[in-house]
Design a protein around this nucleic acid. Structure first.
Lengths: 239, 239
DNA sequence: CGTATACTTGATCAATGTCAACAAGGGTGG
DNA sequence: CCACCCTTGTTGACATTGATCAAGTATACG
């Protein structure tokens, strides 16, 4: 729970809603702000598969991912599981409404989190406009991502959706490096299916199809190697 | 451009990310804040079908709807049109990235808007933490809505999607009144199709199906009358 | 090494997209 | 006020594609 841990959330990879083109793309926290955040945060380390919070339970904390991967999902009455998001380093999660979490959060890998009491964070935000802005930026970024995903989910074809997913995961590895070809997929096929709104079998078949087309090579269950970046990009763009 | 116009955006129908259950659900602006907003806003009145801004053009303004309905959409390479959102009174729009709008906004009905220069709004937000919070709340609300929509779009069946859509439109008429049965649908079938990720024909067939089941009666092109609220709710819930 | 879990592959069926023709509605001008 | 036209919406036939049910294979973990 030392201050430096907050380097992980020091700069959000985001451009705000409200920012002119001329300004820089990110809003980093100051050292002072990081310390303030650290002072209310608890560092927690959780094993793989651990449920972090459940849907409808009291939303007392906001979480930030320091290391590892988390998924948030909702179980639907039909028994299907809709995966809302995968969270990586620097991502915030813990979205609530009326004081209750809107979905369930579960660790996919072993994770390190920072847990912030909502009440304390609120107090902090009320006193620090700049930090509030950083949060506004972050949430706005999430909103854009969510909208983008919605557009892509309008695609009906399974291979196209999976291709889109692989690209998003690649961007998460390193947004700057264009030539990343080895993409870890820590989540299960079932999770991917839940995220893409496909059946488990369709994801499997779509993966086979992408391999057949020579776009992606799936090595083992948790690694995708992009064989033809341009071809993959073309497929994703062909909305 | 007088201060009272800002009553329209005075309270966002939202619960924030960061708010405990005990607190009130909305964050209204103070009179002073409304005046500050009014001082930088321009009131504009536009006819139906008018394009408000185009995708990729310079994002110099944020807009708030005072009256009427607006849609935002993106034209995809395939020629299809993905409708991102329908905006109603009090809604904000003008989401941008790198200083460019992410989609195109067009008036569906005759509309009255408040147009805020981004630079001025930024200055205002930097000086008023409370107002910033109101914006944070609003964006967070949008994020939740977007996630909810994503879950519903995972449904594959057209009648279910359309039922969900009718309910959302009903909620927009009056969130408090449970017994609203007459729901105006100002947008075209084509717009609905673009929003739901269905073909125009499927929307038409789904509408016929809902009528056949006795759930909704479509009177003319722009009015839906909910015949069986419970049945409709059951269909929507059957995700 | 064995068992449970995760994944793949196959066959069938239901549902939506697509192409096409047709009907209805709204607005305009005579 | 009516007729016309153009846009929007409806209905039908067919093909495509993913969901589902079912069986079999690979992998991870104890």
């Amino acid at each position: 729970m030392s201050a430096p841990v907050w380097r992980h959330v020091a700069s959000f990879n985001a451009t705000p809603f409200l920012r002119s083109a001329a300004e820089a793309a990110t809003v980093p926290f100051t050292t002072q702000q990081r310390e303030a955040l650290a002072s209310i945060a608890t560092r927690v380390r959780l094993p793989s598969r651990k449920v972090i919070y459940r849907e409808d339970s009291a939303a007392n904390w906001i979480f930030a991912v320091a290391e590892g991967v988390v998924k948030t999902y909702r179980d639907l009455p039909s028994g299907k599981r809709s995966v809302s998001a995968f969270l990586f380093a620097r991502d915030l999660f813990g979205l609530s409404e009326h004081g209750r979490y809107l979905n369930t959060a579960q660790a996919i890998t072993q994770v390190t989190l920072y847990r912030l009491p909502v009440a304390d964070l609120m107090t902090l935000l009320k006193h620090d406009g700049e930090m509030q802005l950083a949060f506004l930026v972050k949430v706005t970024y999430e909103l854009r991502e969510s909208q983008r995903r919605a557009i892509l989910l309008n695609r009906r074809d399974a291979p196209g959706r999976l291709a889109m997913f692989v690209q998003r995961m690649r961007d998460h590895v390193d947004r700057s490096a264009k030539r990343v070809q080895s993409v870890p997929l820590p989540m299960s096929r079932s999770d991917i299916a839940g995220f893409l709104g496909l059946s488990l079998e369709s994801v499997s078949r779509a993966a086979a199809e992408l391999e057949r087309r020579g776009l992606v090579k799936f090595e083992g269950r948790h690694l995708a190697r992009i064989a033809d970046p341009d071809g993959l990009a073309a497929l994703v763009a062909a909305v």
